[in-house]
């Protein structure tokens, strides 16, 4: 495998973890987050500091999971206070705040970021394998959750909190759970990203990146694990395969986001389902 292929596959794995974890929050539980990049970044910085300080891979992973989910729970409390579209606004704010804050912090490297992060020692192929294993585990967890009673309750909370409450479902607890799990995984993705690049700057975690992740979720079909995985892989490869997409990345992602919401709100999953139904009927 060439170095290029290894790096593409690693990035795909990281993006799959990010998109699938965002789908847990926004797809399963209906809590729209446009700041997933902030949790990704928080995990990356936590892992970078841990690696610089101790060089321990397991410690870095734990630090990233913890930092991601703590920040996520804090934002989760916001979801208890505001209606869905304002939650989306709040999460945008959290993303900007995260970037604005990190930029001014000398101990986080400020504008320059953190470089010279010690290697994991697994080599590029080892890192890639680790990333793929974590991505597979994330997909498995997501599939499990959607079948479990937690996934069942998430759907209820996402559709109508008041009605969920009349069935004895404590919406607040479930929203916090969704944020806690989803953002811990985003933190994990950040950690893997740090292992992969060994150099981070805050620009990688900005709002635009969060919009790209949301585009993956919406285009894949909000709520569908496999749809989101397909979209995450496809949208990561697209700019690599097509020069035009690479140059005009935001144009294409923004355009796809608008088109899919406008013309096929169910995303790829919805289209496949409809095609399947049509075939069965004919």
């Amino acid at each position: 495998m060439s170095a290029y292929e290894i790096s593409i596959i690693s990035i795909i794995g990281i993006n799959v973890i990010l998109a699938v974890s965002l789908n847990m929050i926004s797809g399963f539980c209906g809590q729209i987050s446009l700041g997933h990049g902030a949790f990704f970044g928080a995990g990356a910085y936590a892992a970078a500091l841990t690696m610089v300080g101790s060089g321990s891979v397991p410690l870095a992973i734990m630090a990233a999971l913890l930092t991601g989910s703590l920040l996520g729970l804090a934002v989760g409390f916001a979801s208890l206070r505001v209606r869905t579209d304002f939650l989306a606004v709040t999460t945008i704010g959290v993303n900007f705040l995260f970037v604005g804050f990190v930029r001014k912090q000398a101990w986080l490297g400020g504008e320059m970021g953190i470089s010279g992060i010690p290697a994991t020692g697994f080599g590029p192929v080892g890192n890639m394998t680790m990333i793929l294993l974590f991505a597979a585990a994330t997909i498995a967890l997501s599939l499990y959750i959607s079948r479990s009673w937690m996934g069942f309750a998430f759907r209820a909370v996402g559709e109508d909190e008041g009605a969920a409450a009349t069935l004895g479902i404590n919406s607040g607890a479930y929203k916090l759970a969704a944020f806690g799990i989803g953002t811990a995984l985003a933190g994990l993705a950040g950690c893997l990203y740090t292992f992969f690049t060994q150099f981070i700057t805050v620009d990688a975690f900005d709002f635009i990146f969060s919009v790209m992740l949301m585009a993956m979720v919406v285009i894949g079909g909000i709520g569908s694990t496999w749809g989101v995985v397909v979209a995450a892989v496809g949208l990561t490869l697209l700019p690599e395969a097509i020069r035009f997409v690479n140059d005009y990345r935001l144009l294409v992602f923004g355009g796809l986001l608008v088109l899919v919401i406008r013309l096929a709100p169910g995303g790829l999953t919805g289209m496949v389902q409809r095609a399947f139904l049509a075939v069965r009927r004919s």
Binding site: W149, M150, L167, Y174, A177
Partner: peptide, 16 residues
Amino acid sequence: LGAGYRRTSSPFRALM
């Protein structure tokens, strides 16, 4: 979903 109210009493229990 209503009938499973015992299972959904906490997210952790629901996950199990």
